[in-house]
Amino acid sequence: MVQRGTIDLWVGVFAVIGLGALLFLALKVANLTSIGSGVQSYVVYADFDNIGGLKVRAPVKAAGVLVGRVESIALDTKTMRARATLALNSEYRFSKDVSAQILTAGLLGEQYIGLLDGGDEVQLAAGDKIDITSSALVLEDLVGKFMLSFAEKPTNSTE
């Protein structure tokens, strides 16, 4: 029979190791201070003609710095455009005429939203809509355009 004291000691060690591991995961791996986990954020909207392969929780970056995440994506049935809801870190403020662009990390990497700050004095507030947007590059459309330009019959299939 293992002694009572030994058991207590080992269970204590186990608890410390286990909780330490959880803490490590929270602090060192997930970086508790990053967006979306208890950090103050504000929500803005952006409408796109085509979001391509953008996913919920995709990063929102400004000058390559992570400033927020895509919270949800929905189709606006009136305009038939995609509406992305972005949660931005409250630390970062942008001007009202900021532009949003769907970009791809690397050639085949995941898609994210890039923000390019404008010159307006007025700041973008929570609940505002980003007016200047440009859609994702869809590879098939690109190839299609390319082929059609060869046929010298430019039709605007994607407006």
Binding site: A26, K28, V29, A30, N31, L32, S34, G36, S37
Partner: peptide, 11 residues
């Protein structure tokens, strides 16, 4: 790792 792992979502 830190910029892509989310506390709530992943951990």
């Amino acid at each position: 790792m830190q910029s892509n792992v989310d506390l709530h979502y992943d951990v």
